[in-house]
């Protein structure tokens, strides 16, 4: 019995999605290491002689414990992805799960930090920028939506619970608009990439 093979594009998409997920996972772990190092410096301070980073006042023990727990959870999830991929388990939904975990953990950290006022808000853009690595326009759309929802949660939390972390309305709108437009540009990029690959293949096959 002859079984129909998957389409060539499906095979290419899966292979590059696998490689992209590995790179995104590496980026995730490196980012956690860097941001946790900054958190340690904020907590304990650092004096190198020629340059000094004094401890930040707002980073108390409770905040540090929460950030440490979230960092461990994030590294554990990244290691879980690594183990899954090295066990030949690479479901189509994995990229959506990892993106959701990224957005939820980042939003959790921001909820215990300065909310929408925190400079860590730009990390939403890093998560969005890592989405095309998985070679899926659907994932880019989902990531743009998820990051916007995460930011709206922060704004809502600041509005309802912590007025000291509020940001002006125009800043909220600009951030949401920037996330949406960045997502749109990345979706166009994914579509153009596929069209370019197909055009290249057609030209190579042409006599």
């Amino acid at each position: 019995m002859t079984v129909a093979p998957p389409s060539a594009w499906h095979v290419v998409e899966r292979v590059w999605s696998y490689r992209g997920e590995e790179r995104a996972n590496l980026m995730r772990i490196l980012a956690i290491a860097c941001f946790y190092a900054i958190e340690l410096v904020n907590r304990h301070g650092l004096n190198l002689g020629f340059i000094e980073f004094p401890p930040v006042e707002g980073v108390d023990e409770r905040f540090h414990a929460a950030v440490t727990a979230l960092a461990v959870a994030w590294v554990a999830s990244a290691l879980g992805v690594l183990i899954m991929m090295r066990s030949r388990r690479f479901p189509t939904t994995l990229k959506y799960i990892t993106t959701t975990v990224d957005v939820v953990l980042l939003t959790s950290i921001l909820l215990i930090a300065d909310g929408p006022r925190s400079p860590l808000v730009i990390t939403y853009f890093i998560i969005l920028a890592a989405a095309p690595l998985r070679f899926s326009a659907g994932l880019v759309r989902y990531t743009a939506l998820a990051t916007i929802v995460g930011y709206v949660v922060l704004v809502g939390d600041a509005w309802l619970r912590r007025p000291e972390t509020r940001v002006p309305r125009y800043q909220q709108l600009m951030t949401i608009l920037a996330l949406a437009l960045a997502g749109l540009a990345l979706v166009y990029l994914m579509k153009m990439l596929r069209e370019a690959a197909e055009a290249y293949a057609a030209r190579r096959e042409a006599p």
Partner: peptide, 17 residues
Amino acid sequence: IGWVVAFVVALFVLSGV
């Protein structure tokens, strides 16, 4: 070696914790 680097950095973070 990307996944090896990922593993080593993850171990580094977990050791720091």
